[in-house]
Nucleic acid binder design. Structure first.
Length: 853
DNA sequence: AACTGTGGCCTGTGAC
DNA sequence: GTCACAGGCCACAGTT
């Protein structure tokens, strides 16, 4: 009998779950997760019941089976001895599906098996390898189960007489009424979709009971973290912080001599032996429906499981199951916040790119304004310090989910509902998988065959435009050359969700682009040779389009509606951010080879429509008498437009392009050099908006950054053209003082350090850039280095040196003056100022002045 | 063989 | 996803 979890690859694990079975009648409970129980050979669901605040397991009662699809007939398949004799093979069922690529019905055969392994196998085995071509065979079994039963993770269900019943949440009448009014003009198909989306998004999210866990491990070598797959060292501390008030630190005190530390507002407990300590940890892990960690997949929970095995815990007493990359719990859900915050879409679109490094300290300090405690080596801490340090980590881990009224938990649940993925998966996987799941769900719901990647490429082919950047696949957005100089009263207009609007308006989808109907060939995407179907509504167009409309015309206005309570506004803001994450990724995925529905002409057409919208808008502005100073992808910077002119332009875009334009920002004035993606704008309140300028980049030495910040401070104080001479004086003083500091070597070495991230392993660099040189010097001194590490180096006379190995005398001061110059020049150019003059260097004799002498 | 100027390329960091 | 920048690396060609 198998007791241990058998690994099936990422995420799919033949888990033997533990915990409470759902009673025959379970009140309203939220579906959070699903899996496959290898022993029972059944799919199971994890339901969170908000009154008892517990997880209940519910097992499939419909005899749902794993399957994949073949285009061969049952008769043909029956001749395949390898298939018929395959262990676990059960039966064949003929079925009709819709082949969207061909636009016609297709007869397929469902191949049913007793367990998911028989379909997918391990390595190169499984039915899908025996039969050659197969469809829908790479979908995780529990995900298949969710699709086939039309389940929506994150939504409420009930168990009645042992059966799972949907708790049909209906939109309140007044909400439905207002929505109908707003979307009255939309196509019926869109309206239906939007109503269903709104039902999922509007349904309240219950408070989720959860505990954050953090462990500390003894380190025999200072600062060397023990390998969690070996777990050689004892667990010396663990802390819990929960939503129901638990704040507890468990400490290992084998000597039994120390005095129990007192930590404010927390309970501290000693354990004389590690086994008892771990047993207590497991008791808490089993008790909570949701366990939060920061990097628990790769460290805390992984270590605990291994450590328990080392201490000869019987497997069934370890509540942790281990996949190749992820670590799960038998009873509840494990959510690794490290993975969630690492997700680039979450980082950029949900948190505005506020945190840059993916460690707990950086994320927590920018998101909730709380830092880790600073310590040296773990093993050098007193029990008192250890307890405080460990508690703080659990505390900030918990608070990352609790700030702003549980914003992050709600965001996760909303993402779960949109994507149809389990909460564990949605917090671990990238946005392309979310979109894939959403698309798969919609295919299954409609009875469409989910195409394989090769099917789409074969039918639709590649791209026809040439990218500007070598090595890219197709032509992207337009960036206009800015008009250099200082411009007062600049208004920036942007398209509301340009690419999703393009996808919606032009009916873009993998099945509608380059369709087979001769009569559609005239509907050509401007700037390409691709045409789009005029007969059928594209699936992507419908999904993305309806989500877009809902965000732009419903949730975004609501999140800013002063007539709503603050709580409501926050919730609407979460929803609109979640939608934004989806929408922003929706175009890119179709241009990513790794995406299973990769469709180059689709991505290419989307970008082409974006270019068309931009060029048309610039033309229209010109005709309205507005000068366009700059524009990038979906925005235009207008020079002193009147309100009437703006209104006309917005109206034009709505009528001619079918896209809403919003006033994104208004600058009191803006400074442009001739560089694209580089400018400084000053808002009416004097705050400064900086884009692309070198002085803002994260790798720039603090001394230079500081100087740049002061420069922007001076510019922020400029109210009108009359203030400019004064500002110039201030800038002159600033440059002089920084220059003098450099020349006088009046600095700390750290202030001059460039901090550049290692983008790959040291061995795989083709060239030898500066940060790699410095990294190699560190490695020679025994530092271990990894992808993502930040290398700090200073530029010295003899080349670069890691900041740790350099001294102040080494510094190549002239080089730093050069950096200062090029950084300042990006703005001084536009102000007609000359850096050389500011630092007392004679003006270069230009050829011109030479001849006119 | 050493030096220098050039231009393509690599790398990291952003904008959108 | 593509576009754009800074800044340095590096191969190459031509010169001394």
């Amino acid at each position: 009998m198998r007791v241990a979890a058998v690994e099936l690859g990422d995420g799919e694990e033949e888990i033997i779950p533990g915990g409470r079975m759902a009673p025959d009648d379970l009140p309203t409970s939220y579906l959070l997760s699903a899996g496959y129980d290898g022993k029972a050979e059944k799919a199971f669901l994890r339901l969170y019941e908000p009154t008892s605040q517990q997880i209940y397991l519910w097992y499939d009662d419909t005899n749902h089976l794993p399957y994949c699809i073949s285009k061969a007939s049952p008769e043909e398949l029956r001749k395949n001895k390898g298939l018929v004799g395959y262990p676990g093979f059960l039966s064949l069922e003929e079925e009709e599906k819709f082949d969207a690529l061909r636009g016609e019905a297709v007869k397929v055969t469902k191949i049913l098996a007793s367990n998911p392994l028989a379909i997918g196998g391990q390595g190169r085995s499984g039915i899908r390898y025996v039969i050659g071509d197969s469809w829908e065979s790479h979908i995780r079994y529990y995900q298949n189960y969710i699709y086939d039963r039309g389940l929506v993770p994150g939504m409420p269900y009930r168990v009645e007489g042992g059966r799972l019943v949907e708790e049909k949440y209906a939109l309140p009448d007044d909400v439905a009424g207002r929505m109908d009014a707003i979307f009255a003009e939309e196509e019926a198909e869109f309206r239906e979709h939007m109503r269903e989306w709104a039902r999922l998004l509007q349904c309240p999210v219950p408070p989720l009971r959860r505990v954050a866990v953090d462990i500390e491990v003894y380190t025999s070598v200072a600062n060397r973290i023990p390998n969690p797959d070996e777990a050689p060292e004892p667990v010396i501390a663990v802390s819990f912080v929960s939503s129901d008030g638990l704040r507890r630190v468990l400490l290992l005190n084998e000597a039994g001599e120390a005095e129990l530390p007192v930590v404010d507002g927390a309970e501290v407990v000693f354990h004389a032996d590690e086994r008892a300590l771990i047993e207590e940890i497991f008791r808490v892990l089993n008790e909570y429906p949701i366990v939060l960690t920061f990097n628990g997949d790769n460290f805390d929970l992984r270590y605990l499981r291994r450590r328990a095995q080392n201490l000869a815990f019987p497997l069934e007493e370890i509540p942790i199951t281990q996949g190749r990359r992820f670590t799960f719990l038998r009873n509840g859900l494990h959510i690794d916040l490290y993975r969630f915050f690492l997700n680039r879409s979450i980082q950029i679109y949900a948190f505005g790119n506020r945190y840059r490094e993916n460690n707990l300290d950086d994320v927590a300090s920018t998101v909730i304004g709380k830092r880790k405690l600073e310590i040296g080596d773990i093993s050098g801490l007193s029990l008192d310090e250890l307890a405080r340090y460990c508690l703080r980590d659990a505390e900030i881990t918990y608070e990352l989910t609790s700030f702003s009224d549980d914003l992050v938990m709600k965001l996760m649940v909303i993402l779960t509902r949109i994507s149809r993925m389990t909460m564990e998966d949605v917090t671990r996987m990238g946005v392309s998988r979310w979109i894939l799941a959403l698309m798969e769900h919609e295919h299954r719901r409609r009875g469409w065959l989910i195409p394989n990647a090769e099917d789409i490429i074969e039918a639709k082919g590649g791209t026809t435009t040439e990218a500007i950047i070598k090595g890219k696949k197709y032509l992207g957005a337009i960036v206009r050359s800015p008009k250099p100089g200082v411009h007062f009263d600049v208004t920036v207009l942007d398209f509301a969700s340009l690419y999703p609007s393009a996808i919606r308006n032009w009916n873009l989808s993998y099945e509608t682009i380059l369709c087979g109907h001769p009569e559609c060939r005239g509907k050509v995407v401007p700037g390409t040779s691709h045409w789009v179907c005029t007969r059928r509504r594209g699936l992507t167009s419908l999904l993305i389009g309806s989500l877009r409309d809902l965000r732009v015309r419903w949730y975004k206005p609501l999140s800013r509606d002063p007539g709503r309570s603050e709580g409501e506004r926050t919730f609407y803001d979460i929803v609109q951010s979640a939608l934004k994450v989806f929408l922003n990724a929706s175009y890119g995925v179709f241009g990513a080879e790794s995406f299973p529905l990769y469709c180059p002409p689709l991505a290419e057409s989307t970008a082409a429509i974006g270019r068309y919208a931009m060029t048309q808008t610039v033309d229209a502005s010109r005709k309205l008498g507005i000068e366009v100073i700059y524009g990038d992808t979906d925005s235009v910077f207008l020079d002193q437009p009147t309100t009437a002119q703006i209104q006309k332009l917005v109206g034009w875009a709505e009528d001619e392009l079918g896209i809403e334009m919003d006033v994104d920002k208004v600058y009191r004035y803006a400074i442009f050099s001739k560089r694209k993606k580089n400018y400084l704008g000053v808002y009416p309140d004097g705050s400064v908006d900086i884009k692309g300028l070198t002085g803002k980049k994260r790798h720039i030495p603090p001394l230079l950054k500081e100087a740049f910040l002061r420069l922007t401070g001076i510019l922020g104080g400029v109210k009108s053209i009359e203030d400019i001479p004064g500002a110039k004086e201030d800038i002159r003083d600033l440059v002089e003082s920084v220059h003098a500091r450099l020349q006088g070597r009046d600095f700390d070495l750290n202030e001059l350090a460039f901090s550049v991230m290692l983008g790959r392993k040291l061995s795989s660099y083709e060239t030898n850039p500066q940060h790699v040189k410095a990294a190699k010097m560190l490695r020679e001194r025994g530092r271990t280095l990894d992808i993502g590490d930040i290398i700090s180096y200073v530029v010295t006379q003899g080349g670069v040196k890691p900041v740790q190995l350099a001294s102040r005398r080494d510094v190549d001061v002239d080089k730093y003056v050069e950096y200062l110059e090029s950084m300042f020049e990006q703005l001084l150019d536009a102000l007609d100022m000359d850096f050389d003059e500011l630092v007392g260097r004679p003006r270069e004799t230009t050829l011109d002045s030479f001849f006119t002498r």
